[in-house]
Design a protein around this nucleic acid. Sequence first.
DNA 1: GGCATATAGTGTCTTAGTGACATTAATGAG
DNA 2: CTCATTAATGTCACTAAGACACTATATGCC
Lengths: 228, 228
Amino acid sequence: MASLDFSQPLFTIDNVMFSIKNNVLHLLLIRRAAPPFDGCWSLPGGFIDIEQDSSVEAAAMRKLQQKTGLQPGYLEQLEVFSGKGRDPRGYSVSLAFFALVPYSAVSSNIATVSQASWWPVQDIASLQLAFDHQEIIQRAHHRLKQKALYSMLPVYCLPPAFTVGQLKAVIEAIIGKEIQRKSLMRRIEASNMFHLTEQKVSSGGRQAQLYQLKPGVDITHFNRNLGD
Amino acid sequence: MASLDFSQPLFTIDNVMFSIKNNVLHLLLIRRAAPPFDGCWSLPGGFIDIEQDSSVEAAAMRKLQQKTGLQPGYLEQLEVFSGKGRDPRGYSVSLAFFALVPYSAVSSNIATVSQASWWPVQDIASLQLAFDHQEIIQRAHHRLKQKALYSMLPVYCLPPAFTVGQLKAVIEAIIGKEIQRKSLMRRIEASNMFHLTEQKVSSGGRQAQLYQLKPGVDITHFNRNLGD
DNA sequence: GGCATATAGTGTCTTAGTGACATTAATGAG
DNA sequence: CTCATTAATGTCACTAAGACACTATATGCC
């Protein structure tokens, strides 16, 4: 194996954290306070601290906690973005994560952290973002769309108890397309991931059943996509 | 953003390169010649060279060329593996790739590179590998299996011209399960990725049509998995 | 109360793509 | 020529999603 006489690239973490607000897909950006790109909106991230971060996932979690005051219910590695041009400070390698969080969990904490705010995903393309964050966001959104078609992942955008109508709205916001309520019901039943609570919830018509994730279950993956 | 007074982790690349030999899924290991783990089999990889590698993908390609003498037809990021314990030299972050290559392309070059050889994936679990390479291989294999169920990715394990029977054998070797020839034919037609050549090939019975990738096409993804 | 309306949930037929397997096609061995 | 072998097709069954009508239960207004 080669020796260590190459200088190492700068290694950083970026997080694309999604949530649903008013039935619209949003993601969290923070305004940079230092060069390069100071003043620009950017993804919350930073450097890994090998003293306190037991893994890159731990580093991502710590950075999210630090910059936004909350921890996502779901976190997954997206992809590494690398090259000479993406950071003016030099060759850099950034591991991007994508995260999901219920919007309710955000609303109370986010106020205390200035310079961070939720943006509708559709509006992001027209912003001037730092680094190659536009591309990272596109990739994250694409991955999330795909996963919403064949898995129950979107539940992580909802509070612990939710209705079928809410889950349907979340999925539709993510994939940008209507789905059949009936199909979703079939999947909920087939997945065996949820149980009904005794509570019901009003939303202008007949009251809806509240569902809850069974403790310790894995996210079901189906072998067919929705919305062909 | 934080300043640079944290020491940076060691950043490395690992490659899980798959191919098919005698209708069995194999992957390429090299024997380490230096500590740590000298003498152990391990994944071909190493450090990125920021002078010559324009991206992490370029680094992965260069390392494969260097250590095995060949370049894969397909290369994709798998996942980052990180932590204090995985490398005795210190905190390390390794980006693993998975690669596919036709076995024919290997056979001539591999002889010139000592200490590299193909191993049946089933036999790997009983080897003593360096670092956390067992886990990396498991993850790569899992991902490859999944992709074989819903995409045409396995064609990258075949030479430029191939028969339906060969593709069927490759897919079966990857997913460890028989599939219906008919289903594969339907996908080949639906994907519109291939065209027939005039040539046919003998294999003990009726001659088989040779198919070829159309130039510049993307790998088709289906919205349903094989082999429910 | 009675009715309109809104949302929740079910029943059921259609549709699309795979599984299973029989059938036909082409080739080599004897 | 006959048979064994592999390639390719024809056809029906099965499964899960799409479409949409229909029932159920809540709220608000008269």
